[in-house]
Amino acid sequence: MKRSIIFLSVLLSLFMLICPDPCKSEDKSPGKEGILIGLIPEENIFKQMERYMPLAGYISEKIGRKVKFTILSKYGDIIDRFNSRGMDGAFLGGLTTVIAYEKLGVIPLVTVVDTEGNATVRGHIIVRRDGVINSPDDMKGKIVAFVDRASITGYLFPVVYMKEHGINNIRDFFSEVFFTGSCDASVYAVLDGRADVGFVNETELRDMISSDVTIKKELKIIATSPDMPNVTLSLSKRISEKMRKKLLDTLLDISNNSKGREVLKRFGAGGFRRASVNDFTPVYRLLKSLNVNVKEYNYRNK
């Protein structure tokens, strides 16, 4: 199965790299290189592609350069391959932004604002409503479906939560631990009975419930994280100040025109907000509670 996921991810990445240019022909002129933006696998990759493609077209048109997105198979791949794949930026989660900032020196540019005007997101720990889990103690010997070690919602927050409840050795406490690679896959693992405990951010869960009413009745939230920064676009230091400003203005202004609003609608967001390193204080706080130095944080799934 892992092979299938990897195969699909590689296929999609290739597809996105070779897909037709959504903007005008002037972007192909010599000397004007495209901008490659990496994406973490937030959800089903086909669904994610549908969301991001119009945004790529919109930005390309506004900045006069071709913008391409590439989805990586794992959260941590962004860190490992940012330089080798020649990425100019990436839409990252809270934890990957902090790791990329510390390790690669990327600069946070804008944070996604959801349709309700929030630039923050919370994570939920979920279980089946008809199951027997009501507290961390009930989780002993159960199966847990983490998302990715480089995810706040899907790993860092749950680990901190468990530590606060006296669970220090996760591998010993649970009978089985696995990583799903995306939030929706963690939810489906719980829904399908492949896992007893799963993790999801509230935006993703809301989307899933809106497309399937039965999900709400099947799941129970047993803990919720503090507010964490939403998905943030960070840019490489290689990107010029001028281009950074262009991108910033384009994204901050997106909700002020009808075409931009249409793109946002398909993207499932209300707009963007200027990001700063200070926004990520809650992430540093979680890492500190585990006594982990971010530069030494092991973000690779075992």
């Binding site: 008809d130 199951g131 829904l191 009975g193 099947e218």
Partner: peptide, 10 residues
Amino acid sequence: YTVPIASFIR
């Protein structure tokens, strides 16, 4: 045992 009946339909 429990089986997730909703998953069948989904």
